[in-house]
């Protein structure tokens, strides 16, 4: 980042990097607050309602008030829970969600890490969150939460396979797992991977939506059957951390999708007078909007449809995409 990563380690550089990481954390938290506001507004408009409009101008302070409310709620830890696991589950779930953002390159100069296994790092760390969800559901010692936790794990592991396979076409085309190299490959060839890797993109879009546990794949927290799923017993800020995890993953997954398929910070049509970070943000917001749009449009699927769709639909398609890319590359088309 701005050349600091190339220099020898010193405590001054360490401090700068730590401050930059704190700044990113604040940006992510701000994004989460206004993503929730934006989501409620968008869904409100789509259902011909107004959405939040009471707290502050146009309801802009609604989520700020919600966070404050959660902070001053009493923290109830029921008697029958497995206390230690119950308390650490939100942390286990949240920490990886922030760690994966370290791998994302935002612009040519603004990146936090430059590791050769960036994509593998993202896949590996993001799957650790599942442990937190299962622990939270099990430790609550509540029938709804264990069902929600089990469903959540079954769903997330099933959709993780096609999600990770959908990257493989891109890895084949670039021969690198480094996310900066992947963006550079798109800039150099002048074509974003959404076009040559369209099948991979569609698989990613669907599997990513399921990984985030968002509607139409929000079975783990299907409120009309399971109350709230794996966080039934959580209250106050512990509950907030499970929600936060979900939205931080929205941030991370949309950023990853921009990096992999939409050319990262690359300006389309030679419109380079708009700064790269703005391009990144625009593409990013488009994908975030897609997630909210899907929530307002699709009804929730049934659990058997959900599991069968992953194993009988997405995984064969993702495998086919890998082999197709390899064959086309051998023939010299890519």
């Amino acid at each position: 980042m701005f050349g600091i990563l190339d220099q020898q380690f010193s405590w001054l550089n360490f401090t700068i990097l730590a401050l930059a990481a704190v700044a990113l954390l604040l940006v992510v938290l701000l994004f989460v607050m206004y993503a929730i506001y934006f989501e409620r507004k968008v869904i409100g408009w789509m259902q011909l309602r107004k959405g939040p409009n009471r707290t502050g101008p146009w309801g802009l302070f609604q989520t700020v008030a919600d966070v404050l409310k959660l902070l001053i709620k009493e923290d109830v830890v029921p008697k029958k829970v497995d206390r230690f696991l119950f308390l650490i589950a939100p942390i286990i779930s949240f920490t990886p969600s922030f760690m994966v953002i370290a791998a994302i390159p935002f612009t040519e100069n603004l990146y936090f890490t430059d590791i050769n296994v960036g994509l593998l790092y993202y896949g590996a760390i993001s799957s650790l969150s599942i442990t937190g969800i299962l622990l939270g559901g099990w430790a609550s010692n509540n029938k709804y939460s264990i069902m929600g936790g089990m469903r959540s794990v079954a769903q997330m592991i099933s959709y993780e396979v096609p999600l990770i396979m959908s990257f493989l076409g891109i890895v084949l085309m670039t021969g690198s797992l480094n996310l900066r190299d992947i963006v550079h490959a798109q800039i150099d060839s002048g074509i974003w991977f959404i076009f040559p890797q369209f099948i991979g993109f569609v698989v990613f879009l669907i599997a990513g939506n399921a990984e985030l546990n968002r509607t139409p794949f929000d079975l783990p927290e299907a409120e009309n059957e399971l109350v709230a799923g794996y966080f039934v017993e959580y209250s106050g800020f512990r509950f907030a951390f499970f929600m936060l995890t979900e939205y931080v993953y929205t941030f991370a997954l949309s950023s990853l999708m921009v990096t992999l398929f939409l050319g990262g910070w690359d300006a389309p049509f030679g419109l380079t007078f708009i700064p790269p970070i703005v391009w990144f943000a625009l593409k990013f917001l488009l994908l975030v909007f897609y997630l909210f749009w899907a929530r307002a449009t699709f009804p929730r699927v049934k659990i058997q449809q959900l599991m069968e769709f992953a194993w009988k639909g997405l995984i064969p398609v993702a495998l086919f995409n890998v082999m197709l890319t390899a064959v086309l590359k051998t023939l010299g088309i890519f």
């Binding site: 990097l17 990481a21 790092y121």
Partner: peptide, 21 residues
């Protein structure tokens, strides 16, 4: 240096992710 520095940053992210909760 980029290799060791990158993993230092990841450690910072890990610590921040634990400290915030």
């Amino acid at each position: 240096y980029i290799y060791s520095n990158s993993y230092t940053v990841i450690t910072i992210f890990l610590l921040l992710g634990i400290i915030l909760p």
